[in-house]
Simulated assay, not measured.
Amino acid sequence: MLDLGPHAAFIWISYGAAAFCVVALALWAWGDERGQAKRLADLERRGLKRRSGQGQGNS
């Protein structure tokens, strides 16, 4: 095992907090992507289309 000295608790808590933040951000991004996809599908179902899908260059 690693000898982290007298600050071992702080180091492990810091690693845990960083891992928690990374996982939380990934889950948030995944959930937001799903929500945006549902909203987009609803708009397309109602007949609204994406401007970027028209094939015309937007200058």
Rank of each mutant, 00 (worst) to 15 (best):
S14T: 13
E44L: 13
L4T: 00
L27E: 07
R51T: 04
W12S: 11
F20H: 10
I13R: 15
A41N: 01
G31F: 11
R45A: 15
Y15T: 07
G31C: 07
C21S: 14
S59F: 10
P6F: 09
M1Y: 02
S52G: 02
H7N: 15
A37F: 00
E33M: 10
I11Q: 11
Q36L: 11
G57M: 02
G5I: 00
G55Y: 02
G55K: 04
D42T: 08
C21M: 14
V22K: 09
L4Q: 00
R34C: 05
I11W: 09
G5H: 00
E44F: 09
F10W: 14
A29H: 08
L2Q: 08
W30P: 01
G5M: 03
V23E: 06
L2D: 03
R50I: 01
G35L: 12
E44K: 15
R39N: 06
D42R: 10
A9M: 12
S59V: 11
K38Y: 02
R45W: 05
K38I: 04
R51W: 01
W28E: 06
A37H: 01
G53N: 05
S14P: 05
S14A: 14
F10S: 14
L27Y: 11
Q56C: 03
Q54K: 07
A26H: 04
L2W: 02
G31R: 12
A19R: 09
G53S: 09
A37E: 03
L4A: 03
S52Y: 03
Q54E: 12
A41W: 02
D42N: 08
L43A: 13
R50N: 03
G55H: 01
G57Y: 02
A29K: 12
K49Y: 07
Q56S: 07
A19E: 09
L4Y: 01
W30A: 14
L40M: 12
E33C: 06
G53V: 02
D32K: 10
L25I: 11
G5P: 00
G53T: 05
E33A: 14
G16V: 06
A8K: 10
A9N: 12
G55W: 04
H7C: 12
R46P: 01
S14L: 14
P6T: 12
S52W: 05
L40S: 08
W28M: 04
K38C: 01
L43Y: 15
W30C: 09
S14C: 12
R51A: 09
W12Q: 13
E44P: 10
L27V: 11
R51K: 03
A24P: 00
A18V: 15
Y15P: 06
W30G: 09
S52V: 05
W30Y: 12
D42G: 03
A8G: 01
A26W: 08
L4M: 06
P6L: 13
M1C: 02
R45H: 11
G16H: 06
N58R: 13
Q36F: 07
L40C: 06
E44W: 09
R45S: 10
A18I: 15
H7K: 15
D3P: 00
M1T: 01
A29T: 11
L48Y: 15
